[in-house]
C-alpha cells in the first residue's frame, strides 16, 4: 500500500489501490478485523474514484499570442 493519503490520490492511484484492496479481500486470507479495515479503506478509495469521475467538466480555451508568438493568456472557445 502507498503512503499517499486517499484524498490526495490521483484517479489512477486510487484505482490501483482499490484493485489491491479488493484482491486481498477476495483471497479471504486476512483476519476478520483486517478485512473490515480493508473494506473501509476500499470504501474511501471508491469515494475518491467517484470524486475524480465527477470532475468531468469540459472547458475549452485557446491560448492568445502576442506578436512574437508568446503566450499571453487564454480566451474561451465556443461552438466547437
Amino acid at each position: 500500500m502507498t503512503d499517499t493519503p486517499v484524498t490526495d490520490m490521483s484517479f489512477e492511484q486510487a484505482m490501483s489501490e482499490l484493485e489491491k484492496v479488493l484482491g486481498q479481500l477476495e483471497r479471504g486470507d486476512v483476519a476478520l478485523d483486517e478485512s473490515i479495515a480493508l473494506y473501509e479503506r476500499g470504501a474511501a478509495l471508491k469515494k475518491r474514484c467517484e470524486e475524480k469521475l465527477k470532475e468531468a467538466e469540459e472547458k475549452v480555451a485557446a491560448i492568445t499570442l502576442d506578436g512574437d508568438g508568446t503566450a499571453t493568456g487564454t480566451k474561451p472557445v465556443e461552438g466547437l
Binding site: 484517479f11 484505482m15 482499490l18 484493485e19 484492496v21 479488493l22 479481500l25 477476495e26 479471504g28 476478520l32 478485512s35 473490515i36 473494506y39 476500499g42 470504501a43 471508491k46 474514484c49 467517484e50 469521475l53 468531468a56
Partner: peptide, 27 residues
C-alpha cells in the same frame, strides 16, 4: 471512457461488499 470507469467503480464496490459478506458467511 468515463461511464466505463463509473461502472468499474460500482463493480469494484459490489465485489468488495460481496467479498466481505462472503468472508463473514464463510466464517
Amino acid at each position: 471512457v468515463r461511464h466505463e470507469l463509473i461502472a468499474w467503480v460500482e463493480q469494484q464496490d459490489a465485489r468488495m461488499r460481496q467479498a466481505l459478506s462472503q468472508g463473514l458467511t464463510r466464517r
